[in-house]
Nucleic acid binder design. Structure first.
Lengths: 339, 339
DNA sequence: CCAGTTAGTATAAACGGTTAACTAAATTAT
DNA sequence: ATAATTTAGTTAACCGTTTATACTAACTGG
């Protein structure tokens, strides 16, 4: 269908080898100027585009990177993906997008698929709390397809990763509230998955450092969604009368749900209950009461992941990185500096 | 690096052709059960994965689809992409993700790249108001790489498309406000690009049908971002004293920005100013005052685009589709049904 | 004037699959 | 017993590149 190197060669009256040399500028001294110009002209006239897939076969390099994320609808991943894409583009890699929806079966399917597509490397947010696919990771290793975990990593499989320090983030959020004078600080979130566990650890550490006794009553179980935050908070406010003056929510979405619940109970944020989230989603700065939150350097995470992956592809050394989160002060925590 | 068909053949003591037949189950009658089982076993033992890129070269099919969107950070595209991905997966196509950031140069670059990668088809949200790349579209046509426009289309290039009826949407939004009793309805948005023009047309048509005189003073120029909406509205409220009782905003982000401006002027939504947006972004239902909006069937748009593209790839007939938008009533327009 | 360089180009074997055409052995029909 | 057919498999060309090697003039130096 498309024009091939052979046709170019025939029309320019040279061999395919010469054409290839012109295209890639290999051994430039081996092609005379006249020939080069003639070939170039034919290529242009015919609108020739080399087939990267044929080249890939010959060079064992596809310039394709696999990207497996949980989903793309949550506002968390797009920023990471943007970082990845921008950086990958610089090195002429394209991205194959795969979303797992948190389903390890899908993850497995895509891992196999990407192997078949002979991608040069894979960036992956693993389905958390699942070691089901460790075997597949090993197979990738055998095939020498580098892999880097992003956002989360599995301690069961040692490999490259780029993550944020969740514990430190939880610590920073809680410390911020403590320094604003709060003593009764609730934790709204999970404690039984890798991420929740770490963030809760930071929360407890901050309490400990400031000599505030940990109070189990102030742990409000909640998942990561808006609904989780909303209903958990609502139920809590309706049943307990001894409410906290501040909340550290496991993530921004949860925080937003909680804020809606708080408002519906006739309470005000931050006056009655201050609140801090985690992630710093784009919208978190745009709501009526902008959310104080622990920002994950999402864009940078993506960028760094690509850098590391490419290093690995080029057989250079690379190591895992833990990035520092950042406290972003807005109105929801009631800090005067935000007004 | 990875195991090849040749190694399988050697170990199973058959020819590569036989192995290929086992893999693809072509001419199943030409491989005896014993041989098939033996080959299958060797494949499994060695963890063999066929190279789709080698296969692609032989079959002239990569099972790759190019996806070029404006960006991935705005909440608009992810839902479309999800529709695309889910549907593509059903047919074993993978997606190469490309974002243009509205830059025609980037679009051109990616169009070329995707051609080089020999994708089987391309889905594209074209950079609007730009015909710079028409030539590239023509080249794709020549190479028989099918293309479908999604969300917007360029009338300069006739080809497949899946879009929403923007004019109808504008009409529905305005009609909704009129039926709630509003007479002074503002339009907040652009009128000089394809999309804005259509939405504004619908707005005017509704006014006309209900015998409300069009008032130029109620057109508030604004772009598509939160900031655009915020500053345009703020400026308008500060300078004009004859304010509208309702606003039809060109998109949800603009509407959110406007709402913030309205609140900061001490006015209430929907009591003082009712507001209707366009798009129905995920967050629009989660804010303190949920937004009434014209929903674009984003997920479906993605799905349909893939369906059409695959039809075209398989040389079946396919035509452009205009989907109907849907009015989603929430609190911001002040309709009692939403309370 | 001829061997040795060198510049410029061609040849052909990969890369990892698919597939049309062919073949040998076993089975069936005559 | 022989021819025809079926079954199970092989061979080899091809897809569009890259690249090591080979080749051929023209040029250089002795």
């Amino acid at each position: 269908m498309a024009v091939t190197i052979k046709e170019i060669a025939k029309i320019a009256n040279v061999s395919v080898c010469t054409v290839s040399r012109v295209i890639n500028n290999t051994y430039p001294e081996k092609v005379s100027k006249g020939t080069r110009l003639r070939v170039l002209k034919v290529m242009k006239d015919l609108g020739y585009r080399p087939s990267i897939i044929a080249r890939g076969l010959a060079k064992k390099k596809t310039s394709l990177l696999g990207l497996i994320v949980r989903d793309i609808m949550s506002s968390f991943y797009p920023e990471i993906i943007e970082g990845i894409e921008d950086e990958a583009k610089k090195f002429d890699y394209s991205l194959i997008l795969c979303t797992t929806k948190g389903n390890p079966k899908e993850e497995a399917k895509y891992l196999r698929l990407l192997r078949e597509k002979r991608v040069d490397g894979i960036i992956l947010t693993p389905v958390i709390n699942e070691q089901a696919n460790i075997k597949l990771f090993e197979e990738l290793k055998r095939d020498k397809i580098p892999l880097v975990f992003i956002a989360y990593y599995l301690k069961e499989f040692k490999g490259l990763y780029v993550v944020v320090d969740h514990k430190l983030g939880g610590y920073m959020a809680t410390k911020h509230l403590i320094e604003l004078g709060h003593k009764r600080i609730g934790y709204l979130g999970k404690e039984n998955d890798i991420v929740g566990k770490e963030r809760a650890k930071g929360y407890k550490q901050a309490l400990f450092e400031y000599n505030i006794e940990f109070n189990k009553e102030l742990i409000i179980k909640s998942g990561y969604s808006w609904k989780d935050g909303y209903y958990s908070m609502k139920r809590f406010l309706k049943t307990k009368n001894n409410r906290p003056t501040a909340i550290f929510a496991i993530c921004d979405m949860t925080a937003w749900g909680a804020m809606q619940a708080i408002r519906q109970e006739g309470l005000k944020v931050p006056e009655d209950i201050a609140i801090v989230g985690f992630d710093d989603l784009g919208i978190s700065s745009l709501m009526e009461v902008p959310l104080t939150t622990i920002a994950q350097p999402k864009y940078e995470m993506g960028k760094v992941a690509v850098t590391k992956l490419i290093k690995k592809i080029e057989h250079k050394n690379a190591r895992g990185t833990i990035l520092k989160p950042k406290l972003v002060i807005r109105k929801s925590s009631g800090d005067r500096r935000a007004f």
